[in-house]
Design a binder for these strands. Structure first.
Ligand code: NAD
Ligand code: NAD
Lengths: 224, 224
DNA sequence: TGGTTAACGTGAAAATATTCACAAAACCAT
DNA sequence: ATGGTTTTGTGAATATTTTCACGTTAACCA
């Protein structure tokens, strides 16, 4: 019964999962500057949330600390790594070696967390570079590559009109989840995970909320 | 009373706002291929949501269509542009001319939506390029630039240890909201809007949920 | 050593977000 | 015109997430 409940939570508490990853990053940093223990208050302060939220997140996933002494960073990190699966290395392919694809490729932070970008794929012959590390390969070899190396994670960084076609190849070849930068709602089987990252939307929304804040202030000034 | 309610909703229905921007993008595309009208079902299908969600979002913001005839794209786009503020041009500065900063700079899609990237700033002299368009300028000129051109929107694309210091300059100079790529919780006044975009987190979470899906399937196979 | 108390852990309550269910309007066919 | 059908618009219900409130417990202190 308890286990079923846990599974259920794991499936639905998406936002908690996201926060756990963030807690982990902060803990790694705290550890690196010599901190050994901290309280839920400290974590909350660093993460811009509340101590209740921190403890609730931990509670949902069965992570525990010590009454009055807070959390031991080493213990907590061990539990988090277990839970979040740092220990298995995950290989990732990126399709689209343009602005975004290359930016991700050059970022070194993924590797530390067990995510290895093993290859990029592009349809433009001018972008091929088989001897680079990671290599940029022709789109035509995508299917075979995924099958051969049993890749499960992909990134879609192609223009929106090519995104579904790329995804279809990935699904057929055995990929189970993607991070998608193309601004389009992709179709996939139910047991496939898509994480849409729409950077235009993210920036537009900043402009919107800035305007909204401004209007709110004007209103308050005009009131009373 | 009605207006107050609307304002309240505008402030809190963040996810609805985000979806409105997405509806808008889809409508622009639909219009460009000659479509004149569509139903909430069509929109829902294209966006990967439900028609109820679409109508509810519209309802919250007072957007309306025609019973039985659905929505006229031109009308709807006009209302959306009014609401989401396409009509004002917004100038944006990016701090950090590295992988992410440059990827954003090269993306042409912002301009169409009234977002103009007017300059990048960096602390590394090797990245300066005052004659490029947009120019890459020294960090030292950031404060003055923002003040001079009354910029309100910023992007933070620097390493995490530099992010707060960059934000502090921006706040002081009059910026009102940022999109932040640095994986750290930034401190800002209450009337400042921060949109955190944590790409490592987004990719890690794909790996996590793929694993979670797999475990779920295994469980189902073992059950019965 | 036993009382104090700071901090955790977690049900219950509140706030948000989504989905349901259906009335009302618009169009169509007759 | 009239009845049937389609689609919108929206309160009410449900689901999810966050916050509150407080019991519990282990560390510290006198
Ligand atoms: N760069 C940004 O800041 C930004 C912002 C918002 C959204 N996006 C979205 O992210 C995606 C990628 O953007 P970008 O700026 O990197 O684009 P880009 O044009 O720089 O790169 C796209 C790459 O995909 C390749 N490509 C095209 N069709 C392909 C196919 N069928 N298979 C394989 N490769 C193919 C192209 O050759 C190109 O190298 C786009 O969907 C874009 O809308 C990007
Ligand atoms: N590239 C990615 O795929 C990726 C993925 C996840 C997170 N991020 C985050 O996004 C941010 C930017 O990443 P990136 O890959 O573009 O990094 P980058 O190292 O390529 O670029 C950072 C740029 O910021 C400049 N800089 C450093 N300190 C500065 C300061 N005080 N003021 C102005 N400029 C300064 C550097 O000179 C450099 O040009 C980082 O915080 C990183 O953690 C990036």
């Amino acid at each position: 019964m308890g286990i079923v409940k846990e599974r259920y939570k794991m499936k639905f508490a998406k936002l908690s999962v996201m926060r756990l990853f963030q807690y982990k990053d902060f803990l790694i940093r705290a550890k690196s500057i010599g901190i050994k223990n901290l309280f839920s208050d400290d974590l909350a302060e660093a993460m811009g949330t509340t101590s209740t939220q921190v403890r609730k997140d931990f509670s949902l996933f069965g992570l525990s600390g010590n009454k009055r002494a807070g959390y031991n960073i080493d213990d907590l990190l061990e539990q988090l790594n277990e839970l979040l699966g740092k220990n298995e290395k995950q290989r990732v392919v990126i399709v689209g070696a343009g602005n975004i694809g290359r930016a991700l490729m050059k970022y070194s932070g993924f590797y530390k967390e067990g995510l290895e970008i093993v290859a990029l794929f592009d349809s433009d012959i001018n972008n091929y570079n088989a001897s680079a590390n990671p290599p940029v390969l022709p789109l035509e070899s995508l299917y075979e590559f995924i099958c051969k190396y049993k890749i499960e994670i992909g990134v879609i960084a192609v223009p929106y009109h090519a995104a579904q076609q790329v995804l279809d190849i990935m699904i057929l070849a055995g990929i189970k989840g993607v991070m998608n930068f193309a601004p389009i709602a992709l179709k996939s089987p139910k047991d496939f995970y898509i994480n849409d990252v729409n950077l235009k939307l993210e920036l537009e929304s900043v402009a919107y909320f800035v305007k909204a804040l401004k209007m709110e202030q004007e209103e308050q000034t005009n009131d009373v």
